[in-house]
């Protein structure tokens, strides 16, 4: 399907939902507050992303919660861009936000590079961040400064790698074989 067809179809399907206007106003408010160059926007249909520097991400998220009413932290996730074509940065952390009274959705994204894989915790803004941040830490090794209990959540605590990093082999480094063997005689 060509670009023009996609656009025609999207236009024919429906008008822009009301919450998208709210999201656009939110981005304007973010730019008024943090400066034009600090807030980069990208968009696909009703999927709106703002890309902010890691140093400002906590203030942006606090602003979105306290001033713009994004009361629901849907998810925190991360991406490893190792070997990704034309990628400039190694990791991205993504916060997925929602405002429950009008259904507005917004994604906040920031890029990180080694060796400083630390972003501030948002546990004090949304309690839901507790386990979400632990999961990102568990899988990617990204640290959330100020988290009250930042330890592994899914993998065993003695696990030594971050398995969703692209330089970690799919079959692991022997972790699945590292157990004692029970025989009939012993058991």
């Amino acid at each position: 399907m060509g670009e023009a067809q996609v656009q025609d179809k999207a236009e024919a399907a429906a008008e822009q939902p009301a919450w998208l206007d709210f999201v656009e106003q939110t981005i304007a408010a973010l730019r008024a507050r943090f400066g034009q160059e600090a807030i980069e926007e990208s968009r696909f249909r009703d999927n709106v992303r703002v890309i902010v520097p890691a140093t400002k991400v906590y203030e942006v998220l606090a602003f979105l919660k306290n001033e713009r009413g994004f009361d629901f932290l849907v998810d925190i996730t991360a991406v490893d861009y190792l070997h990704y074509p034309n990628a400039r940065d190694r990791f991205a952390v993504i916060w997925s936000l929602m405002r429950t009274d009008n259904g507005a959705r917004l994604f906040v994204k920031t890029f990180l590079n080694e060796p400083d894989l630390t972003v501030p915790t948002v546990f004090d803004l949304w309690k839901a961040a507790d386990w979400l941040e632990r999961e990102v830490y568990d899988m990617f090794g990204i640290r959330f400064a100020g988290h009250p209990n930042l330890k592994r959540i899914l993998l065993p605590e003695e696990f030594s790698a971050y398995p969703l990093r692209k330089d970690y082999p799919l079959r692991g480094r022997g972790e699945r074989h590292n157990f004692r063997r029970l025989t009939r005689e012993q058991s």
């Binding site: 398995p163 082999p169 079959r171 692991g172 699945r176 004692r180 063997r181």
Partner: peptide, 15 residues
């Protein structure tokens, strides 16, 4: 499930 987390057959560790 040939991945890092899944044991490749319980008979490796149990009778």
């Amino acid at each position: 499930f040939d991945t890092y987390a899944v044991v490749q057959g319980i008979d490796r560790f149990l009778p």
